[in-house]
């Protein structure tokens, strides 16, 4: 597997909240806004309900990136789930660093239901970034 950005198509798992980021992705779709097909979306009710274990699992299984998308601060459907998610993601990224894994592969973004274009831009930006980073070295790592 080459690190060349031409022949490497990253696989990115996106955990999107039902009320904002997922609706934003939906809007991108219904508006026919183009974005790369590298993303696999998993819908959650709230980013605050995302157990870090699922992010760790997909990274260990070889996903090249994880995008966590929630409501903008202050807009959470459950009042403050996104603020709590931010704390959990902070702990997660710190623990990945300490474990010697690449925390850069985990992104947290706030995307509202009206931001279909911003969702598409985020995906484009992330795909470009991960392409530069190269494939997840854990993809073929069996001893973990």
């Amino acid at each position: 597997m080459g690190k060349n950005s031409v022949d490497f198509e990253p696989k990115i798992i996106a955990f999107l909240c039902n009320w904002c980021a997922y609706a934003g992705a939906d809007l991108a779709g219904t508006s026919r806004t183009q974005y790369p097909s590298n993303i696999r979306i998993i819908k959650l009710m709230c980013t605050g309900a995302l157990d870090p274990t699922y992010v760790i699992k997909v990274l260990l299984e070889g996903a090249d990136g994880v995008l966590i998308g929630g409501c903008h601060p202050g807009d959470c459907h459950y009042i403050n789930g996104n603020y709590k998610a931010r704390r959990r993601v902070a702990i997660l990224k710190s623990s990945l660093e300490t474990a010697g894994l690449e925390s850069e592969r985990v992104w947290l973004r706030w995307i509202s239901a009206s931001e279909g274009v911003y969702f598409a831009e985020t995906v484009k930006e992330m795909v470009e970034h991960i392409k530069k980073l190269g494939p997840n070295p854990l993809k073929m790592e069996w001893a973990i």
């Binding site: 870090p52 760790i56 990945l96 069996w142 001893a143």
Partner: peptide, 21 residues
Amino acid sequence: KKGQIKMPVDTVLYHLTKINH
């Protein structure tokens, strides 16, 4: 998927999850 897998599986997942919790 990887061509091979260590058994028991998920020892890194176990500890990193415990750490995050």
